[in-house]
Design a binder for these strands. Structure first.
Lengths: 256, 256
DNA sequence: CGGGTCGTTGAGCCGGGTCAAGCTGGGTGG
DNA sequence: CCACCCAGCTTGACCCGGCTCAACGACCCG
């Protein structure tokens, strides 16, 4: 993550620009939104369970997770929040949302009060569309996670997740061609994939032995050696992430 | 489902009314939207994989599933679509959405072209909010499904799902106090819960033996004998479905 | 130097999968 | 009206992927 970003707005401008043409004014709006910023430490909660908080957040840097605790004490990680992601809007609609968002690494976010969101959406179809698109994409990722949990074995789950993270990070320029910084403990992987820590450990070993990945537990650098082979083996199809798949036709239809 | 609905609009009006106050004009919009209607037979696809179709659907009657096929031939059911549900909007944003929607029973839907959606949202904050809320709720259900698959055993998964369906059906007046018509084969349950057919069968038997449920495979009538006990046993908390949890504060914030 | 967090490995067990067979009831054609 | 078929349900026997328990190792930090 040693890249240099001149302003915090850049990552969001780049992300949105890949599927809509932003005007000068819209770019200025984004720059204003990203002017002030909140920092969270590792393991600190960003949104607490049952917090009534009508605002959204732009994730500037670092990794976060959305998770729920089940009655018997277990934790299920629902999704990863990566730089460039937007979150927290849905929660604001419910009095009680029983999921929480927590920083996995030091994190920087930009908070957007709900009234500002409404204001922005009213005044810019492009930005309104961007928000709609971000939510649609988030939903596609959740659906893929359901398939991963329901119909894949441990080896496939791990391979599939590692590929998804690679591609999501690449879209925001936070990964190399085949490697990235993976700040996850084996416990976090286990709680994401519905597996035990021990089995995650053994499955990672298998992936290493098969020369699918290289992972240095010290530096936390993950390298996917053969994306093609791993995609095949894990049943990975990155269609669900493609933002280029948004056609201008659809855009026009959707905004009327 | 022998209830009498004077017009198709009623179910949606009732649903939306539970968290926003609809104006006369908005009610007329809904009535117009539900004027014409498409019918699908059992097992017929409503939205095909990779269909580029910029429209949304209101589900009037019947059950449908959203699912994906995995490379090795398995099927994962991602969600159930019940009367009163809205679907198909997200798909319209992507060129390729790799999930499909299929009727489980005979189904009636109202199709809404994308430009009409945009038009409606522009002219009614209430209806725009309703759409936003419906999406948020759908996402909450997906998240709960992830927890179910990742951190619960077969017994809990089944119990949890049967309770969720009861409560969702009750909200649209399609279930009794503790029983409903469940048009699902054990294969459908298996593909939803990430289990094998055989194990679903045995687990249903356990639920019956424990006097948690009664289920007649012929009539397909399911009765949940002790909701309290089953909720406890399955770790079920219906918070994630509560629409009353939408506070007026939030509404005001969200629409600015 | 001691404690804490995370990773690693072995041994044994069990929840749930697989395979295979039989059952049941409704639908269809002769 | 019966014979057959077929989809869905049921049950038994066996197996295996993944879990649990337990111990140990490696590193970091105070």
């Amino acid at each position: 993550m040693g890249d240099t970003i001149s302003t915090d707005a850049e990552i969001f401008i780049a992300k949105f620009s890949s599927y809509v043409d932003l005007s000068e004014a819209e770019i200025r709006v984004i720059e204003e939104l990203t002017r002030d910023c909140m920092a969270f430490d590792e393991n600190q909660d960003i949104i607490q369970e049952s917090e009534k908080n009508a605002s959204a957040y732009l994730l500037q840097s670092g990794w976060a997770i959305r998770y729920k605790i089940v009655p018997n004490g277990g934790r299920q990680i629902i999704s990863f929040l990566l730089p460039g992601d937007i979150f927290g809007f849905r929660e604001s609609l419910f009095d009680l949302s029983d999921d929480s968002v927590q920083a996995l690494t030091p994190v920087r976010v930009h908070r957007i009060p709900a009234e500002k969101i409404a204001d922005i959406c009213d005044n810019s179809t492009n930005l309104s569309l961007a928000l709609t698109w971000a939510r649609a994409r988030e939903q596609a990722i959740l659906m893929e996670h359901i398939v991963r949990l329901g119909r894949r074995n441990a080896y496939e789950r791990l391979g599939h997740l590692l590929l998804e993270l690679l591609h999501r990070l690449q879209l925001v320029d936070k990964a190399g061609r085949s490697d990235y910084f993976l700040p996850l403990t084996q416990e976090v992987l286990a709680d994401t994939l519905g597996l035990s820590i021990v089995h995650v450990n053994r499955t990672l070993r298998k992936l290493r032995n098969d020369r699918m990945i290289e992972l240095d537990p010290q530096t936390r650098r993950l390298k996917i050696i053969d994306q093609e082979a791993l995609s095949e083996r894990a049943g990975y199809d990155q269609t669900f992430l493609d933002q280029s798949a948004l056609t201008q036709d659809c855009v026009n239809d959707a905004v009327g």
